[in-house]
């Protein structure tokens, strides 16, 4: 166990230092995560009219929660892995006595840590711009989730990150056979974008559409953790079972594809 923590800590140190080498890029990463804040503007303005089931304060709170969830669930392993395979730089990593997946996972955490200061600034800006988000309005009370809700939200975020990572890494492994896997994965990302509640809360979906997407894994990646963080009731059991089930299934597929892929790997550049 201690050997493992030592390894992971070493990886974290390396990746954190690597990220800091090109700090300016982190700023762009942070800007790239602003989609929920754009949608916050659209939906809180739309809710002002009173045509929707939720109030402007609720909308602002929802999208700020989505923003937080998105910060810790962004995954980019496919671009990195595609580059490694196509350029032949995967080969030296295969010689190490550790499965490289650990390094990629830790790299994501290091990137999140680098992004943190900018995220805090953006978050404070939003809370100042939309004070009703935390203060509440006539329709919703102040934003005060209980300890259990916050713990559940954090756990759901971690599960959502794991699922997105396993999902994307499984697609990334197809790089052993196809050269442009990132383009293929773009299709999955679009499903996540539109069906997860990132661009519109599930509450404003027509009932049939809402029931349909709840059977897919997507809303559990964004809408579910965001609801928990808001301190609202959510189908907790169903959420964690869905997330856990998909993680398990994809992890098994992932290991099978990894074995097959390694056999197929022609080690470009070797």
């Amino acid at each position: 166990m201690t050997a493992w923590t030592r390894r992971l800590r070493a990886f974290f140190g390396i990746e954190y230092a690597l990220m800091l080498t090109y700090r300016a890029e982190i700023l762009l990463w942070a800007v790239a995560t602003c989609l929920p804040l754009i949608m916050l503007g659209v939906w809180s303005q739309a809710a002002e009219s009173g045509d929707f089931v939720r109030s402007p304060a609720w909308m602002a709170r929802y999208f700020i929660a989505v923003f937080l969830v998105r910060q810790v669930t962004i995954v980019w392993v496919i671009h990195h892995f595609e580059f490694l395979v196509v350029s032949g730089r995967l080969s030296p990593q295969l010689l190490l006595p550790v499965d490289p997946v650990w390094r990629y996972a830790v790299a994501h955490l290091a990137e999140q840590a680098c992004r943190l200061p900018i995220v805090v600034v953006m978050l404070i800006g939003c809370l100042l711009l939309f004070p009703t988000a935390w203060r509440g309005d006539a329709a919703v009370g102040p934003w005060a989730p209980g300890l259990g809700a916050v713990a559940g939200g954090v756990l759901a975020c971690m599960a959502a990150f794991t699922l997105r990572f396993v999902l994307q890494y499984t697609f990334a492994l197809l790089a052993f056979w196809v050269e442009r896997v990132a383009a293929v994965h773009e299709l999955v990302y679009l499903l996540i974008l539109f069906a997860s509640g990132m661009v519109a809360p599930l509450e404003v979906f027509p009932a049939a559409a809402r029931d349909a997407v709840l059977w897919t894994p997507f809303p559990w990646l964004v809408w579910f953790p965001a609801k928990l963080l808001m301190g609202e009731s959510a189908p907790v059991l169903r959420g964690f079972v869905t997330l856990g089930g998909w993680i398990l299934v994809l992890a098994v597929i992932n290991r099978v594809v990894w074995r097959c892929g390694l056999k197929h790997h022609s080690a470009m550049g070797a």
Binding site: Y22, W29, Q45
Partner: peptide
């Protein structure tokens, strides 16, 4: 100056995303 800026495109398309909706549909600050 900054050498490695591959994410410009991601940042740019995230910001252009705001153009998907009519500008009048945003709050005044936006």
């Amino acid at each position: 100056w900054f050498v490695k800026l591959y994410n410009i495109t991601i940042a740019m398309s995230a910001l252009l995303e705001a153009g998907r909706y009519p500008i009048q549909a945003y709050p005044a600050v936006y």
